[in-house]
Protein backbone atom coordinates (compact mmCIF):
# COMPACT_ATOMS: atom_id res chain seq x y z
CA UNK A 1 0.00 0.00 0.00
CA UNK A 2 1.41 3.31 -1.00
CA UNK A 3 2.02 6.01 1.57
CA UNK A 4 -0.50 8.21 -0.24
CA UNK A 5 -3.26 5.66 0.12
CA UNK A 6 -2.40 5.07 3.76
CA UNK A 7 -2.67 8.77 4.46
CA UNK A 8 -5.94 9.00 2.56
CA UNK A 9 -7.34 6.13 4.64
CA UNK A 10 -6.53 7.90 7.88
CA UNK A 11 -7.96 11.19 6.63
CA UNK A 12 -11.20 9.73 5.28
CA UNK A 13 -11.85 7.67 8.42
CA UNK A 14 -11.15 10.69 10.62
CA UNK A 15 -13.40 12.99 8.55
CA UNK A 16 -16.25 10.48 8.64
CA UNK A 17 -15.90 9.98 12.38
CA UNK A 18 -16.18 13.72 12.95
CA UNK A 19 -18.87 14.23 10.32
CA UNK A 20 -21.23 11.65 11.79
CA UNK A 21 -21.99 13.27 15.17
CA UNK A 22 -22.06 16.72 13.56
CA UNK A 23 -24.60 15.52 11.02
CA UNK A 24 -26.72 13.99 13.75
CA UNK A 25 -26.79 17.33 15.51
CA UNK A 26 -27.71 19.21 12.35
CA UNK A 27 -30.29 16.58 11.49
CA UNK A 28 -32.17 17.27 14.71
CA UNK A 29 -32.19 21.03 14.08
CA UNK A 30 -33.34 20.96 10.46
CA UNK A 31 -36.73 19.83 9.29
CA UNK A 32 -40.23 20.88 8.41
CA UNK A 33 -40.32 23.33 11.30
CA UNK A 34 -37.13 25.23 11.96
CA UNK A 35 -35.62 24.82 15.38
CA UNK A 36 -32.54 26.88 16.24
CA UNK A 37 -29.43 24.73 16.55
CA UNK A 38 -28.88 26.04 20.08
CA UNK A 39 -32.34 24.97 21.19
CA UNK A 40 -31.92 21.55 19.67
CA UNK A 41 -28.55 21.10 21.36
CA UNK A 42 -30.07 22.11 24.69
CA UNK A 43 -33.04 19.81 24.09
CA UNK A 44 -30.61 16.97 23.64
CA UNK A 45 -28.12 17.64 26.39
CA UNK A 46 -29.76 20.00 28.91
CA UNK A 47 -33.55 19.68 28.65
CA UNK A 48 -34.10 21.42 32.04
CA UNK A 49 -32.76 24.70 30.64
CA UNK A 50 -35.59 24.99 28.11
CA UNK A 51 -38.37 27.57 28.48
CA UNK A 52 -41.99 26.42 28.42
CA UNK A 53 -42.28 27.63 24.85
CA UNK A 54 -39.37 25.47 23.86
CA UNK A 55 -40.83 22.35 25.48
CA UNK A 56 -42.81 21.54 22.33
CA UNK A 57 -39.63 21.77 20.32
CA UNK A 58 -37.98 19.48 22.81
CA UNK A 59 -40.59 16.89 22.01
CA UNK A 60 -39.99 17.29 18.30
CA UNK A 61 -36.25 16.96 18.73
CA UNK A 62 -36.17 14.08 21.16
CA UNK A 63 -39.13 11.97 20.11
CA UNK A 64 -39.42 12.67 16.38
CA UNK A 65 -36.20 13.89 14.89
CA UNK A 66 -33.56 12.16 16.97
CA UNK A 67 -34.95 8.64 16.51
CA UNK A 68 -35.41 9.37 12.84
CA UNK A 69 -31.86 10.64 12.43
CA UNK A 70 -30.46 7.69 14.36
CA UNK A 71 -32.58 5.26 12.31
CA UNK A 72 -31.28 6.88 9.11
CA UNK A 73 -27.72 6.34 10.34
CA UNK A 74 -28.37 2.74 11.30
CA UNK A 75 -30.15 1.87 8.05
CA UNK A 76 -27.51 3.61 5.92
CA UNK A 77 -24.74 1.93 7.85
CA UNK A 78 -26.37 -1.50 7.70
CA UNK A 79 -27.04 -1.29 3.95
CA UNK A 80 -23.52 -0.06 3.16
CA UNK A 81 -21.97 -2.73 5.38
CA UNK A 82 -24.01 -5.43 3.77
CA UNK A 83 -23.30 -4.09 0.27
CA UNK A 84 -19.57 -4.10 0.97
CA UNK A 85 -19.78 -7.70 2.18
CA UNK A 86 -21.92 -8.87 -0.73
CA UNK A 87 -19.53 -7.29 -3.23
CA UNK A 88 -16.61 -8.98 -1.48
CA UNK A 89 -18.40 -12.29 -1.37
CA UNK A 90 -19.41 -12.23 -5.03
CA UNK A 91 -16.07 -10.70 -6.03
CA UNK A 92 -18.23 -8.42 -8.07
CA UNK A 93 -18.54 -4.70 -7.41
CA UNK A 94 -22.00 -4.71 -8.95
CA UNK A 95 -23.54 -6.80 -6.17
CA UNK A 96 -25.85 -5.00 -3.77
CA UNK A 97 -27.45 -5.93 -0.44
CA UNK A 98 -30.54 -6.86 -2.42
CA UNK A 99 -28.81 -9.27 -4.80
CA UNK A 100 -30.35 -12.30 -3.08
CA UNK A 101 -33.90 -11.00 -3.33
CA UNK A 102 -34.23 -9.48 0.16
CA UNK A 103 -35.92 -6.34 -1.17
CA UNK A 104 -38.54 -8.14 -3.25
CA UNK A 105 -39.22 -10.66 -0.50
CA UNK A 106 -39.59 -7.92 2.10
CA UNK A 107 -41.87 -5.92 -0.20
CA UNK A 108 -44.14 -8.92 -0.63
CA UNK A 109 -44.23 -9.43 3.13
CA UNK A 110 -45.05 -5.78 3.73
CA UNK A 111 -47.66 -5.71 0.96
CA UNK A 112 -49.33 -8.78 2.45
CA UNK A 113 -49.60 -7.07 5.83
CA UNK A 114 -50.88 -3.79 4.38
CA UNK A 115 -53.39 -5.35 2.00
CA UNK A 116 -54.77 -7.71 4.62
CA UNK A 117 -55.35 -4.68 6.85
CA UNK A 118 -53.46 -5.93 9.89
CA UNK A 119 -52.04 -3.56 12.45
CA UNK A 120 -48.96 -1.97 10.92
CA UNK A 121 -47.21 -2.27 14.32
CA UNK A 122 -45.71 -4.78 14.82
CA UNK A 123 -46.85 -6.75 11.79
CA UNK A 124 -45.38 -4.52 9.08
CA UNK A 125 -41.71 -4.86 10.11
CA UNK A 126 -42.27 -8.51 11.02
CA UNK A 127 -43.86 -9.27 7.66
CA UNK A 128 -41.10 -7.45 5.78
CA UNK A 129 -38.38 -9.18 7.77
CA UNK A 130 -39.94 -12.60 7.23
CA UNK A 131 -40.44 -11.95 3.52
CA UNK A 132 -36.84 -10.87 3.04
CA UNK A 133 -35.52 -13.84 4.95
CA UNK A 134 -37.75 -16.25 3.02
CA UNK A 135 -36.43 -14.96 -0.32
CA UNK A 136 -32.81 -15.43 0.79
CA UNK A 137 -33.48 -18.91 2.15
CA UNK A 138 -35.07 -19.96 -1.14
CA UNK A 139 -32.12 -18.61 -3.12
CA UNK A 140 -29.57 -20.16 -0.77
CA UNK A 141 -31.40 -23.48 -0.87
CA UNK A 142 -31.28 -23.39 -4.67
CA UNK A 143 -27.56 -22.70 -4.73
CA UNK A 144 -26.51 -25.30 -2.13
CA UNK A 145 -25.41 -28.41 -3.87
CA UNK A 146 -25.33 -31.92 -2.56
CA UNK A 147 -21.62 -31.71 -1.79
CA UNK A 148 -22.36 -28.77 0.54
CA UNK A 149 -20.64 -26.26 -1.71
CA UNK A 150 -22.48 -23.14 -2.70
CA UNK A 151 -22.35 -21.91 -6.25
CA UNK A 152 -21.94 -18.14 -6.36
CA UNK A 153 -23.24 -18.11 -9.90
CA UNK A 154 -26.46 -19.86 -8.93
CA UNK A 155 -26.84 -17.46 -6.00
CA UNK A 156 -26.86 -14.46 -8.35
CA UNK A 157 -29.17 -15.99 -10.95
CA UNK A 158 -31.40 -17.44 -8.25
CA UNK A 159 -31.58 -14.00 -6.64
CA UNK A 160 -32.75 -12.50 -9.92
CA UNK A 161 -35.39 -15.18 -10.50
CA UNK A 162 -36.71 -15.28 -6.93
CA UNK A 163 -36.73 -11.47 -6.88
CA UNK A 164 -38.84 -11.41 -10.04
CA UNK A 165 -41.23 -13.95 -8.59
CA UNK A 166 -41.74 -11.99 -5.37
CA UNK A 167 -42.16 -8.74 -7.31
CA UNK A 168 -44.91 -10.39 -9.34
CA UNK A 169 -46.64 -11.46 -6.11
CA UNK A 170 -46.37 -7.90 -4.80
CA UNK A 171 -47.82 -6.46 -8.01
CA UNK A 172 -50.63 -8.99 -7.83
CA UNK A 173 -51.38 -7.96 -4.23
CA UNK A 174 -51.44 -4.30 -5.26
CA UNK A 175 -53.73 -5.19 -8.14
CA UNK A 176 -56.08 -7.10 -5.84
CA UNK A 177 -56.21 -4.48 -3.12
CA UNK A 178 -59.68 -2.98 -3.12
CA UNK A 179 -58.89 0.33 -1.54
CA UNK A 180 -56.75 2.97 -3.18
CA UNK A 181 -55.36 3.98 0.18
CA UNK A 182 -53.84 0.59 0.85
CA UNK A 183 -52.46 0.52 -2.63
CA UNK A 184 -50.64 3.78 -2.10
CA UNK A 185 -49.45 2.54 1.29
CA UNK A 186 -47.76 -0.41 -0.39
CA UNK A 187 -46.21 1.78 -3.05
CA UNK A 188 -44.96 4.20 -0.41
CA UNK A 189 -43.48 1.38 1.60
CA UNK A 190 -41.62 0.05 -1.43
CA UNK A 191 -40.16 3.49 -2.13
CA UNK A 192 -38.59 3.41 1.31
CA UNK A 193 -38.67 5.98 4.04
CA UNK A 194 -37.73 6.68 7.61
CA UNK A 195 -40.99 8.34 8.65
CA UNK A 196 -42.02 5.48 10.95
CA UNK A 197 -38.93 5.87 13.11
CA UNK A 198 -39.35 5.63 16.87
CA UNK A 199 -37.16 4.53 19.72
CA UNK A 200 -38.46 0.96 19.53
CA UNK A 201 -37.47 0.52 15.89
CA UNK A 202 -34.12 2.18 16.60
CA UNK A 203 -33.33 -0.17 19.47
CA UNK A 204 -34.37 -3.30 17.59
CA UNK A 205 -32.31 -2.36 14.55
CA UNK A 206 -29.34 -1.43 16.76
CA UNK A 207 -29.56 -4.81 18.49
CA UNK A 208 -29.24 -6.54 15.11
CA UNK A 209 -26.74 -4.10 13.66
CA UNK A 210 -24.08 -4.14 16.40
CA UNK A 211 -23.40 -7.91 16.16
CA UNK A 212 -23.34 -7.51 12.37
CA UNK A 213 -20.55 -4.95 12.63
CA UNK A 214 -18.60 -7.39 14.73
CA UNK A 215 -19.35 -10.24 12.35
CA UNK A 216 -18.26 -8.19 9.35
CA UNK A 217 -15.04 -7.24 11.07
CA UNK A 218 -14.26 -10.89 11.79
CA UNK A 219 -14.90 -11.84 8.16
CA UNK A 220 -12.86 -9.13 6.49
CA UNK A 221 -9.51 -10.93 6.40
CA UNK A 222 -11.13 -13.97 4.80
CA UNK A 223 -13.12 -11.84 2.34
CA UNK A 224 -9.79 -10.43 1.16
CA UNK A 225 -8.48 -13.97 0.65
CA UNK A 226 -11.64 -14.79 -1.31
CA UNK A 227 -10.52 -12.05 -3.72
CA UNK A 228 -8.06 -14.63 -5.08
CA UNK A 229 -10.90 -16.98 -5.93
CA UNK A 230 -12.23 -19.90 -3.92
CA UNK A 231 -9.27 -22.16 -4.65
CA UNK A 232 -6.88 -19.32 -3.96
CA UNK A 233 -8.53 -18.72 -0.59
CA UNK A 234 -8.32 -22.43 0.21
CA UNK A 235 -4.58 -22.48 -0.42
CA UNK A 236 -4.14 -19.47 1.87
CA UNK A 237 -5.69 -21.50 4.68
CA UNK A 238 -9.18 -19.97 4.51
CA UNK A 239 -12.38 -21.97 4.15
CA UNK A 240 -14.27 -20.45 1.22
CA UNK A 241 -17.48 -22.21 2.27
CA UNK A 242 -17.50 -20.87 5.81
CA UNK A 243 -16.55 -17.41 4.65
CA UNK A 244 -19.45 -17.38 2.19
CA UNK A 245 -21.95 -18.61 4.76
CA UNK A 246 -20.74 -16.22 7.41
CA UNK A 247 -20.87 -13.24 5.06
CA UNK A 248 -24.32 -14.23 3.77
CA UNK A 249 -25.73 -14.52 7.29
CA UNK A 250 -24.29 -11.19 8.43
CA UNK A 251 -25.28 -9.30 5.28
CA UNK A 252 -28.76 -10.80 5.23
CA UNK A 253 -29.39 -10.01 8.89
CA UNK A 254 -28.29 -6.40 8.43
CA UNK A 255 -30.30 -5.93 5.24
CA UNK A 256 -33.50 -7.62 6.38
CA UNK A 257 -33.54 -5.71 9.64
CA UNK A 258 -33.11 -2.35 7.94
CA UNK A 259 -35.64 -3.16 5.24
CA UNK A 260 -38.12 -4.13 7.94
CA UNK A 261 -38.08 -0.58 9.37
CA UNK A 262 -37.26 1.57 6.37
CA UNK A 263 -38.54 -0.23 3.30
CA UNK A 264 -36.34 -0.80 0.31
CA UNK A 265 -33.94 2.10 0.01
CA UNK A 266 -31.78 1.65 -3.05
CA UNK A 267 -28.28 2.63 -4.09
CA UNK A 268 -26.79 3.15 -0.61
CA UNK A 269 -25.53 -0.41 -0.48
CA UNK A 270 -24.33 -0.35 -4.07
CA UNK A 271 -22.71 3.05 -4.43
CA UNK A 272 -21.20 3.75 -1.01
CA UNK A 273 -18.86 0.72 -0.91
CA UNK A 274 -17.85 1.64 -4.45
CA UNK A 275 -16.83 5.17 -3.68
CA UNK A 276 -14.96 3.91 -0.65
CA UNK A 277 -13.14 1.28 -2.70
CA UNK A 278 -12.21 3.78 -5.37
CA UNK A 279 -10.75 6.13 -2.79
CA UNK A 280 -9.20 3.73 -0.31
CA UNK A 281 -8.53 0.51 -2.22
CA UNK A 282 -10.23 -2.88 -1.93
CA UNK A 283 -8.94 -4.12 1.46
CA UNK A 284 -12.10 -5.20 3.31
CA UNK A 285 -10.58 -4.33 6.67
CA UNK A 286 -10.84 -0.73 5.51
CA UNK A 287 -13.74 -0.89 3.04
CA UNK A 288 -16.21 -2.35 5.55
CA UNK A 289 -15.77 0.13 8.42
CA UNK A 290 -15.39 3.10 6.07
CA UNK A 291 -18.51 2.12 4.10
CA UNK A 292 -20.45 1.67 7.33
CA UNK A 293 -19.60 5.20 8.46
CA UNK A 294 -20.11 6.72 5.02
CA UNK A 295 -23.46 4.93 4.59
CA UNK A 296 -24.67 6.38 7.89
CA UNK A 297 -23.68 9.93 6.93
CA UNK A 298 -25.04 9.57 3.40
CA UNK A 299 -28.49 8.31 4.35
CA UNK A 300 -28.75 10.88 7.13
CA UNK A 301 -28.21 13.69 4.64
CA UNK A 302 -30.42 12.06 2.02
CA UNK A 303 -33.23 11.86 4.58
CA UNK A 304 -32.63 15.45 5.59
CA UNK A 305 -33.02 16.42 1.94
CA UNK A 306 -36.15 14.29 1.69
CA UNK A 307 -37.64 16.13 4.66
CA UNK A 308 -36.74 19.64 3.55
CA UNK A 309 -36.54 20.10 -0.23
CA UNK A 310 -40.32 20.14 -0.75
CA UNK A 311 -41.24 21.33 2.73
CA UNK A 312 -43.73 20.69 4.22
CA UNK A 313 -44.29 17.70 1.92
CA UNK A 314 -41.87 14.88 2.56
CA UNK A 315 -40.28 12.99 -0.32
CA UNK A 316 -39.60 9.25 -0.05
CA UNK A 317 -35.89 9.04 0.74
CA UNK A 318 -35.43 6.30 -1.89
CA UNK A 319 -36.02 8.97 -4.53
CA UNK A 320 -33.20 11.10 -3.15
CA UNK A 321 -30.72 8.24 -2.84
CA UNK A 322 -31.48 7.14 -6.40
CA UNK A 323 -31.25 10.71 -7.69
CA UNK A 324 -27.83 11.07 -6.11
CA UNK A 325 -26.72 7.48 -6.54
CA UNK A 326 -27.70 6.68 -10.11
CA UNK A 327 -25.92 9.57 -11.86
CA UNK A 328 -22.83 8.98 -9.78
CA UNK A 329 -22.93 5.33 -10.64
CA UNK A 330 -23.30 6.10 -14.34
CA UNK A 331 -20.36 8.45 -14.04
CA UNK A 332 -18.27 5.67 -12.50
CA UNK A 333 -19.31 3.25 -15.22
CA UNK A 334 -18.37 5.78 -17.85
CA UNK A 335 -15.01 6.77 -16.41
CA UNK A 336 -13.79 3.57 -14.76
CA UNK A 337 -15.55 1.03 -17.00
CA UNK A 338 -13.49 -2.13 -16.92
CA UNK A 339 -11.67 -1.24 -13.70
CA UNK A 340 -14.88 -0.98 -11.73
Amino acid sequence: MSARRRRLRAVVLAVLTVLLPLSVLLGTALGASKIPLGTSVRALFAPSSLTDLEQAQRLIVRELRLPRVVLACLVGAALALSGAMMQGLFRNPLASPYVLGVASGASTGAALVIVSGWQPVPFLPLGAFAGGLLAVLVVYGLASRRDHRTSVFTLILGGVAVGALFSAVTSFLIFLSSSGERMSDVVFWIMGGLGRANWTSVSILAAVFVPCVLGAHLASRDLNALGLGEEGAFHLGVSPEWTKRWALVVATAATSASVAFAGTIGFVGLVIPHIVRLLLGPDHRVVIPASTLAGAVFLLWADLAARTVMRPVELPVGIITAFLGAPFFLYLLRTRGSRL
Binding site: M1, S2, G227, L228, H235, L236, P282, R339
Partner: peptide, 22 residues
Amino acid sequence: EQQRAVGFDFTVREIVAMGRTA
Protein backbone atom coordinates in the same frame (compact mmCIF):
# COMPACT_ATOMS: atom_id res chain seq x y z
CA GLU B 1 -3.00 -22.35 -9.34
CA GLN B 2 -3.10 -22.02 -13.06
CA GLN B 3 -5.81 -19.44 -13.56
CA ARG B 4 -6.32 -16.73 -11.06
CA ALA B 5 -8.84 -13.98 -11.57
CA VAL B 6 -8.48 -11.34 -8.89
CA GLY B 7 -11.80 -9.80 -7.98
CA PHE B 8 -10.64 -6.34 -7.00
CA ASP B 9 -7.93 -3.83 -7.70
CA PHE B 10 -5.51 -5.09 -5.04
CA THR B 11 -1.94 -3.86 -5.15
CA VAL B 12 0.92 -6.33 -5.43
CA ARG B 13 1.83 -5.61 -1.80
CA GLU B 14 -1.73 -6.43 -0.70
CA ILE B 15 -1.75 -9.67 -2.70
CA VAL B 16 1.58 -10.76 -1.24
CA ALA B 17 0.36 -9.83 2.26
CA MET B 18 -2.53 -12.29 1.77
CA GLY B 19 0.12 -15.00 1.91
CA ARG B 20 0.32 -14.20 5.62
CA THR B 21 -3.35 -15.05 6.20
CA ALA B 22 -2.57 -18.36 7.88
